[in-house]
Design a protein around this nucleic acid. Structure first.
Lengths: 117, 117
DNA sequence: AAAACATTTCGTATATTTGCGAAATATAAA
DNA sequence: TTTATATTTCGCAAATATACGAAATGTTTT
């Protein structure tokens, strides 16, 4: 009976993907994997990143859980690479969110009274 | 002397923006403000959202701190609207991050051995 | 001046995130 | 079979995020 909305699937998905991108280590990993168009060993990444092995492993797990990367077992290594399918979906979701503005007019007068922290 | 990298400004900014987008309440607010191309009172938003006034206020504060929205004082109300300048910057940062892939070939063989949670 | 209103700040509780080292797992090499 | 290697899981501590209600702030209306 209240006017409270449930969040749409879209809103929830955008928040979930953004959360996956909300840490520099994870942004770095995704940037590298998507640019390199190849796979990376966890051991290679830990050399470049300012975190320990177990911490890196957790970040990889989160990205895996979010569906943005996948690991190919290649004993005793695990090669990580972008999950292209989900990466494309994530891109589309964020693109739509960022660019679906009704107009770009500035209707809110920018006055001197704007709150500044 | 270690091979550890510092994160680039770009990587840090992407993580910071993504963090601002990592909660459904904040995604909803940004979606609404960017689509409506108008301003909103905190009181209007609290009617629609499943959080209390003080909690909403905190989310608005975070978005303000991230530079994505601004509040125009209109006593006794405060009208919130998108900070168009920073919103455009955020869009560009994320767009570049999402779309700057060297190629889209799938070089990582997708085998049955993919790790699945 | 007092009452009403919109919003924020404060204090607090709980949950989640981040990080580490040690131990566990599993494979390859000796 | 023992040893070395790559990675993950576990247990824990510290930091951060989320949420609420009560109190504070500041403005308008009465």
């Amino acid at each position: 009976m209240s006017g409270k909305l449930d969040f749409t699937q879209e809103v929830q998905q955008i928040a979930r993907i953004s959360k996956a991108l909300s840490h520099p280590v994870r942004v770095y990993i995704l940037q590298k994997l998507s640019k390199m168009d190849s796979c990376c060993y966890s051991g290679d990444l830990v050399e470049e990143l300012p975190v320990g092995r177990s911490t890196l492993s957790q970040h990889l797990k989160e990205l895996k859980y979010a569906g943005l990367i996948q690991g190919e077992i290649n004993p005793p290594y695990i090669k990580y690479c972008i999950n292209r399918e989900n990466w494309e979906k994530a891109k589309k979701l964020l693109d739509d969110f960022l660019n679906d503005n009704k107009s770009l007019n500035i209707s809110c007068e920018e006055t001197e009274s704007l709150i500044r922290k």
